[in-house]
Simulated scan of single mutants.
Amino acid sequence: MSIPGQEAADALVRRIGVSIDPDLLVLALTHRSFAYEAGGLPTNERLEFLGDSVLGIVVTDHLYHAHPDLPEGELAKMRAACVSQKSLAAIARQISLGPCVLLGKGETSTGGHNKDSILCDAFEAILGAVYLTHGIETSREVVLRLVGPSLAAAAKSGAALDWKTSLQERCAELGLPAPVYDVTGEGPDHARVFTARAMVDGQARGEGTGTAKKHAEQEAAAAAYASLETVDSQVDGVVA
């Protein structure tokens, strides 16, 4: 089976840096919306599942050996930052993956080629295809080359690795209850926008928006964390 836009797909493979079995490449690029409109073709979801696991073990192994003095909690934050939907979608854009993804008419008309969720899933599916074509060692090389900048940035990001966890830790330091999130959504399912408010001790401390609840919550947590940075940590449970 050939891919619409075969030249773009061939260029994508060159940017990935290793060959990929042609049938697996097509499968990795086949979004469920395209598969449905084409009469029930297989989708990239199984490859995405496999690629997610390949990505996880490679990143975890790298962090474990690269940071022997860090506790489990910090390693988990770094891993979460590197394999987040936002981070993987950014990598997908860097290798121009979006234009190669096979989408149905509805997803195409609503900008699906640039949606974080679709890009992230397709990137993980590509990693699954690389693994099935070459095995774990070549997959490791591809992951570390493409995700490497995110791994390096994560080592320097501190609280920004996981704003929700950092906010919870900050609240504990101040003797405040754990934050809760008030999330609302607007718009149709294919273009829904969520707004989150981070509530600390009954008070709204930060607000954020995003195309996924977790992204809106992270943005709200970042704003709330900044607001609490000015609070005297010696004040027992009192927000200034």
Rank of each mutant, 00 (worst) to 15 (best):
V143A: 05
I118S: 00
G98T: 02
Q94L: 12
L127P: 05
Q218G: 11
F123A: 02
P71W: 02
D23V: 14
R93H: 11
A129I: 11
A196H: 06
C100K: 02
A8M: 15
E207M: 11
D52H: 11
A76Q: 12
G111C: 05
A35C: 05
H215D: 14
R197G: 00
L29E: 09
L174T: 11
H62C: 09
G187Q: 13
G51F: 02
R205W: 14
D182K: 08
V238E: 12
A9E: 03
Q218M: 07
L127F: 13
T110A: 12
V142A: 05
G202N: 04
S139Y: 05
L47H: 00
F49Y: 03
L75H: 10
E173R: 14
D61R: 09
N44Q: 14
G104D: 13
A80Y: 01
D61S: 14
G208T: 04
Q218W: 02
L119W: 02
A240M: 10
G98I: 01
L63T: 03
M78R: 15
G106T: 14
D61E: 14
A11L: 15
A224C: 11
S19Q: 15
K214T: 10
D182Q: 11
P4C: 12
G73M: 08
V83R: 03
G206A: 03
L103V: 05
G158N: 08
L27T: 09
E137T: 12
R32H: 01
E107D: 15
P99M: 07
E217D: 07
L12R: 02
G111V: 07
L88C: 07
R145P: 03
V26L: 14
L97I: 04
P99N: 07
V130T: 10
G185R: 05
L25Y: 03
Q85M: 10
G148S: 09
G210W: 04
K156V: 00
A11W: 02
G17L: 06
L228T: 09
A222H: 12
Q234Y: 12
T195E: 15
G5V: 03
V235E: 13
H215T: 15
S150L: 15
H65P: 01
A122T: 14
L24N: 12
I16S: 09
T165N: 01
L167C: 09
Y131E: 13
E217F: 01
V101A: 02
S109T: 13
L88P: 03
Q234W: 13
T108R: 15
A153H: 04
E72C: 12
A226Y: 07
H62T: 09
H215C: 06
Q234G: 12
A129K: 02
G202Q: 07
P149V: 01
L102Y: 01
V180G: 13
L55E: 09
V143P: 04
A9W: 00
E107I: 10
E137S: 14
S157P: 00
L63Y: 01
V13L: 09
L41W: 15
P71M: 06
V231R: 07
S53R: 14
A224S: 06
D116M: 05
G104A: 08
L41G: 11
S53Y: 10
A9I: 03
G56E: 13
R32G: 03
P68E: 08
I118P: 00
E137G: 06
L12K: 02
Q234P: 00
R192V: 10
C171W: 04
R197E: 04
A155N: 02
I118A: 00
V59G: 07
R32W: 08
L25P: 06
